[in-house]
């Protein structure tokens, strides 16, 4: 069975879908990717679909699930290279792909991942800082 290779680039994973993205390949990718996120300690995943000529509701669901599962594993996903005809078709089809980040090309996608990862680590730091410094201000006993 065809499997889609997952490349590691620093703290990010790069997936380029070039083979026919049929059901079994899609499900295998979902599984491989979640495992790879853990084993590589990845903070971001970039999925390049520029070679895809079609995205149907099944593929849309798998891509959405990949993004959701990655987020649960503290990892952001950016989808890049969607062809205009696919964007219009999946919108008409009714796939929202909500919560999935997109960029026009791999370069923009990498930059976006960088920003997302940085923003998250900053947020984490401020949250921790306020937890340490912060005492509940108005905790008065009656």
């Amino acid at each position: 069975m065809d499997r889609i290779p997952i490349l590691k680039l620093g703290d990010k994973l790069l997936v380029t879908i070039q083979v026919d993205f049929h059901d079994r390949v899609a499900l295998a990718l979902q599984e491989d990717l979640t495992e790879k996120i853990l084993s590589a300690g990845a903070k971001g995943v970039l999925i390049d679909i520029s070679a895809l000529e079609m995205v149907d509701s099944f593929m849309g669901r798998v891509l959405g699930n990949i993004a959701k599962a990655s987020r649960l594993l503290d990892c952001e996903t950016v989808l890049v290279g969607m062809q205009p005809a696919i964007a219009i078709t999946i919108t008409e089809l009714g796939i929202a792909l909500q919560g999935i980040h997109t960029a026009l090309n791999a370069e923009g996608g990498m930059a976006l991942l960088e920003r997302l990862i940085k923003a998250k680590s900053n947020r984490g730091r401020t949250a921790n800082a306020s937890k340490i410094a912060g005492r509940p201000p108005n905790l008065q006993r009656g």
């Binding site: 149907d56 005809a85 219009i88």
Partner: peptide, 16 residues
Amino acid sequence: MNQTKIITAASELGRN
């Protein structure tokens, strides 16, 4: 554009 819509519909209905 039509081509993408047709193959997508074919995929959905074929799956059904």
